[in-house]
Design a protein around this nucleic acid. Structure first.
Length: 813
RNA sequence: GCAGAUGUGGCGGAACUGGUAGACGCACAGGACUUAAAAUCCUGCGGUGGUUAAACACCGUGCCGGUUCGAUUCCGGCCAUCUGCACCA
């Protein structure tokens, strides 16, 4: 193989000099915005996963460019975040320094990969020219009431004296020191994503996304339809609501349970029970994440001493508290029906609470308790004999008439907690003034710059709090002395709108121009890992909708089509990780074989959506393939096109037919991200060309040369450097990447033959070869004339004859 | 526990809306070229039986069953692996 990384370098330089990948928004061709999830510059270099994600996606972008689309294919860096900060804590290297250095390296490597990016449209989320607008968006959400502050529990590591992100909590313990993580309440910032729960759910329909990802989001949003029912205290001195999806079982309520954290508990607890209740609340607060995550843990709870009245049947029922009831879901209180709920059943058994059956199976079959299916009501007074569905409706209606209940919908989705007690993030642009309260930083004062010299080692407080010159400021409203918010924004906020910034990345006046984003978005194809199915992809959708409602854009969804690439695992079949020592570095392969061999091997050896364990065995096969192509080009060089007589014979038609079929198949395959089969098709074409040359002494040079040129064009998106080299070797003087994707010549593609399978009882017996353009009737005639078919009719009693016109013939005997 | 994905030759992986299972490649075997090797080219390659060789027959897409003229594909039930979410009332 003559091809090597030197050839890569040569063309990279030339493409750069010629600004080959310059994006022109006004160029002709339909716009196509294709985007890969940008990468996090945590490691110093691109790893195999980056290659597997970005190489094939670049191939897709290149195909689309050749097919005449005006392709917008930007790349940037998700540069804020915890790993850089952790790295800094470990090594003492400032996050800004390490991050900027990593970005430089990664950019260079992406060029070495042959990525067709225009770096004039790039974003780095840690740069003030980007995070200024992240902050600006925050202020707009704040002004619209979509960003708010409230107390919320955070993960707290006692040993490290720090707040932990969810990702830093491994099995309920701190990832660094292994100490059990506790919950601690702190004032936190939230985005009101719950306002959009219904729309986020409903609009999933519109999206061309993998069904499994839509399902993840559906579950994440967790819509649940049921009823809210009011329970009053036996003396009418208190009341509270419960949420239930099974109001039909309300007759079987034998106690109610309130979350220990609920403020109601303090009001209703009797003197006798006060000590027990207080102790229980204390114990619950101490509970760490490990215990909380355990569903195995036996249910515990305490009686408050108070009684409530069942609004449907007037039963007097005890009010308990138990930590299996969550304060922040539903109303923070549940009605317990031990006969028909497994948790309530276990709880009732443990504390000897009564169990009352109110639902029987529809078929009258005797079932054991707890019976959690729907059925027919019993022991429920006027509701007896109704089905569960009928009862739900009637009971809710009756309660509503008394103002003691209503239909209700609950979502599992919680508001998005966006504040972090961390250094390496965008400062939250809020100022606290004694006189004016919370004031957002006006646009003219943005960005609120992240100071460089900060002690970022964790000690339990936001690092920025210790930076006096950052903290002290004047109130934008009254001009008095004020303090800044010391928390920074979750990196998911930075990445929730970056796709909007790319098309207008240099804009210094606005986050983005409305007209520009309306024209360029939504992203036509978005490519990235499915680990982002819930978080990033739902946050970005929320942000688009919120900005739409604030009038900054006019579309509903950011990403029209979504493709998830698979993951390349270590050779041992496990996820690659430094600690397991099973990482594979792309560099050695690039050094040895050149970037296109590596890119092609990644595309050919794995299903793009699936990934799989790394295995370098097959990479030599790609070297062999490249060598065969080089030899072909060399052979072709000996022929002179002018010698051709121009008459196309039968054996040449076959070659042309395969050529056209390959154009079609490869275009479709790459469009579907099936790179492995696209490459297989290209190999078949090469085999065909070689067969033709070998089998014919007197070859038609014109046909061969044209076919080879087409073939190299087909390789251009897959192996950009290599194809360029061969293209020039064929005597061309303009980049192959400026060529059109070959057109399909229908005339050349027609003709030839095809096989029609003949089956007996669904089993293949023989085939009949017919002309590809034969009519179904002609084919049937040919089938009937086949000796084997005649024989079958003679020897068997044919009961049924099935002919799928032009496809298959089956006889039942 | 719930949800989702996956399961096809020795291996990576193909197979359109139910219609010739195993494309393409790797590995392997045999042959050509060579003093020899490498490279290259050609041929074979799911299993079992069968034959001098073929023809041919049977089995075969995780397992069991169903629908159908026909199932890797659709339905029901299992098993295994992986990935999310996890007391959601």
């Amino acid at each position: 193989m003559e091809y090597s990384k030197n050839i890569d370098k040569k063309w990279q330089q030339k493409w750069k000099d010629e600004k080959l990948y310059k994006y022109n928004p006004n160029a002709k061709g339909k716009k196509l915005y294709t985007l890969e999830m940008f990468s996090y510059p945590s490691g110093a270099k691109l790893h195999l996963g980056h290659w597997f994600n970005y190489g094939p996606s670049d191939t897709f972008a290149r195909l689309k460019r050749m097919q005449g689309y005006n392709v917008f294919h930007p790349m940037g860096f998700d540069a804020f975040g915890l790993p850089a900060e952790n790295y800094a804590i470990k090594t003492g290297i400032h996050p800004e320094d390490s991050t900027m250095k990593n970005i430089e390296t990664m950019k260079k490597q992406l060029e070495e990969m042959g990525g067709s990016y225009d770096w004039d449209y790039s974003v780095e989320t840690c740069m003030p020219n980007y995070y200024k607008w992240t902050q600006w968006i925050f202020t707009k959400l704040f002004e619209a009431g979509l960003a708010y502050k409230k107390e919320a529990p955070v993960n707290w590591c006692k040993n490290c004296q720090t707040v932990l992100a969810n990702e830093q909590v491994i099995n309920g313990a701190c990832e660094r020191c292994g100490t059990a993580v506790e919950r601690k309440k702190l004032a936190q910032w939230f985005f009101k994503i719950t306002d959009y729960a219904e729309e986020l759910l409903k609009d999933l329909e519109k999206l061309d996304w993998p069904e499994s990802t839509k399902k993840v989001q559906t579950n994440w949003i967790g819509k649940s339809e049921g009823s809210e029912v009011t329970f009053k205290g036996e003396n009418g001195d208190f009341e509270f609501n419960v949420f239930t999806t099974r109001v039909d079982t309300i007759g079987g309520v034998t106690y109610v349970v309130v979350a220990p954290e609920s403020e109601l508990v303090q009001r209703i607890t009797t003197k006798e029970q006060k000590e027990a209740v207080d102790n229980y609340i204390k114990e619950t607060a101490k509970l760490n994440e490990i215990d909380r995550l355990s569903t195995e843990r036996p249910k515990t709870g305490v009686f408050t001493g108070a009684y409530a009245i069942n609004p449907v049947n007037g039963d007097k029922i005890p009010v308990w508290i138990a930590d299996y009831v969550l304060e922040d879901y539903g109303t923070g209180a549940v009605m317990a029906v031990p006969a028909h709920d497994t948790r309530d059943y276990a709880f009732a058994k443990k504390y000897n609470l009564p169990i009352k059956r109110v639902i029987e199976a529809k078929d009258g079959e005797k079932t054991e308790l707890p019976y959690t299916e729907k059925g027919i009501l019993v022991n429920s007074g006027i509701y007896n004999n109704l089905t569960s569905e009928e009862a739900k409706k009637k009971i809710t209606d009756d309660l509503a008439a008394k103002s003691e209940g209503k239909r209700s919908i609950n979502y599992r989705l919680k508001d998005w907690l966006v504040s972090r007690q961390r250094y390496w993030g965008a400062p939250i642009p809020i100022i606290y003034c004694d006189k004016c309260g919370m004031v957002s930083v006006p646009e003219k004062d943005l960005p609120v710059l992240l100071p460089y010299d900060v002690e970022f080692r964790p000690d339990g407080e936001s690092p920025l709090k210790k930076c006096e010159e950052f903290m002290n400021c004047t109130c934008p409203k009254c001009g008095g002395k004020a303090r800044r918010e010391a928390d920074t924004l979750d990196t998911f906020v930075c990445s929730s709108w970056y796709e909007l910034r790319y098309p207008d990345a240099q804009n210094t006046e606005k986050a983005f121009d409305k007209e520009t984003v309306n024209k360029m978005l939504p992203v036509d194809v978005y490519i990235g890992g499915k680990e982002h199915a819930a978080m990033h992809l739902i946050y970005a959708r929320f942000m688009t909708k919120a900005l739409r409602d604030l009038g900054y854009l006019d579309f509903d969804e950011p990403f029209k089509r979504l493709v998830h690439q698979g993951m390349i695992l270590g050779p041992d079949g496990n996820k690659m990780s430094k600690s397991k020592g099973n990482t594979v570095s792309p560099e050695t392969y690039i050094e040895q074989y050149g970037s296109d061999v590596f890119r092609m091997y990644l595309m050919f050896g794995f299903d793009y959506r699936q990934g799989g364990p790394w295995d370098e065995k097959g990479i030599e096969s790609m070297v062999r393939y490249f060598s065969r192509i080089e030899r072909l080009i060399e052979t072709i060089g000996k022929y002179d096109e002018k010698e051709s007589n121009g008459i196309i014979k039968e054996n040449e038609k076959d070659l042309l037919r395969v050529k056209n079929q390959t154009i079609k198949a490869m275009g479709e395959d790459i469009d579907n991200f099936q790179f492995n089969t696209a490459i297989a098709r290209s190999m078949e074409l090469l085999n065909k060309i070689n067969d033709y040359i070998r089998e014919n002494n007197d070859i038609n040079t014109k046909v061969v040369i044209e076919t080879v040129k087409t073939y190299i064009k087909l390789l251009a998106p897959l192996a950009p450097h290599f194809a360029e080299e061969q293209w020039y070797r064929l005597g061309n003087t303009e980049s192959i990447h400026k060529q059109q994707w070959p057109e399909i010549n229908q005339k050349e593609m027609d003709g030839g033959t095809k096989n029609i399978p003949i089956q007996v009882n669904g089993k293949l017996k023989t085939c009949v070869t017919v002309s590809a353009d034969a009519t179904p009737e002609e084919i049937l005639t040919a089938i009937k004339e086949t000796p084997q078919v005649i024989e079958i009719f003679e020897k068997n009693d044919v009961k049924k004859e099935i002919y799928v016109p032009g496809r298959i013939y089956n006889l039942v005997v």
